[in-house]
Amino acid sequence: MNWLKRKFALLVKMFEALKDKDYDRFKKLIRRWIFGMRFTDGLLFKIAIYTLLISLGYIYMYPMLYMVTNSFMTVSDIISVSIKWIPSRLNWENYRLVWTTINYPRALRDAIMLAGLPAISATVSSALIGYGFARYQFPFKRLLFVLMIMTFIVPPQITMLPMFRMYREYNLLGSVRAFIYPAILGQGLNGAIYILIFFSFFRMIPKSLEESAQLDGAGPFKIFTRIAIPLAVPAIIIVFLFSFVWYYNETYLSGLFLRNSDLFTLPLRIERFFRDYTSIYPEGSQARELMQAAKLAGNILAILPLLILYFFTQRHFVESIDKTGITGE
């Protein structure tokens, strides 16, 4: 607002200059108006910034907008050339189709369990591990730390084959335990990142707090639960949110480990439903055309819980990284 006020004051000054027929002054003022005192507060600069932001924002949101608007379209809307963005009427049919055929409430419950339990395990374990790395000196600490970070680079394909065999041997395939066990040992999806988040967070907490607790006779574990954990609430929220979202969206490992069970992540379930559905109808039939919109509706339903979650917690998501200092200081 201040900026606008200043610009307005300048405008007034310019009029005065015009009235006094002081053209030199007017020229100077108008230059200041456009380019500003040090370029970054000039009009030109602001216009450039907002134009860039808005166009980049549009590019970012384009697929999302496309998904939302097209999911409401009827068959005739999709075929029609004149309708590109706004459907002719709000058509909930696509949503109803997906909702009933995949039994959405049950599918959602499964999906939340599949994402939630591993996310909780990952949060607990990475808090412990991150605290160990951040607070204690022990032999080979550097080596272990580097190994920990290396696990992030190893693609899941490498570990997948033996893990598949291991899980089959112990009958873990098709059960949520296939995800909980690695998570509880700090090896879950993107586990290294969570440990890193906790590591840098615990390092920021002043050591004197813990030392005074130690003087009062608290053991290491008590210090961890009573002092470190309450201070690390932001990190806990962030790690939980991130791991929840990543597990929720995970399709590669879950596609493999849960292959022959009736447990699915939501995106997988919807994908599977459509694969079955498309095989029934021949290419080019009406039902096939409807599929396009219905698929988008299905995808929206798949990410809807995340949208709601994001809507309520976006502050944590977005501030997380500078707060927890994942950036490595």
Binding site: S125, F133, Q137, M148, T151, T159, M160, M163, I184, L185
Partner: peptide, 23 residues
């Protein structure tokens, strides 16, 4: 201190051996 620190990351070491190094 070493023992306590290693206790905290013990679960990670186990996990690393089972779910990363072995595979």
């Amino acid at each position: 201190e070493s023992v306590i620190g290693l206790t905290f990351i013990f679960i990670w070491i186990v996990g690393y051996l089972i779910f990363a190094l072995y595979p």
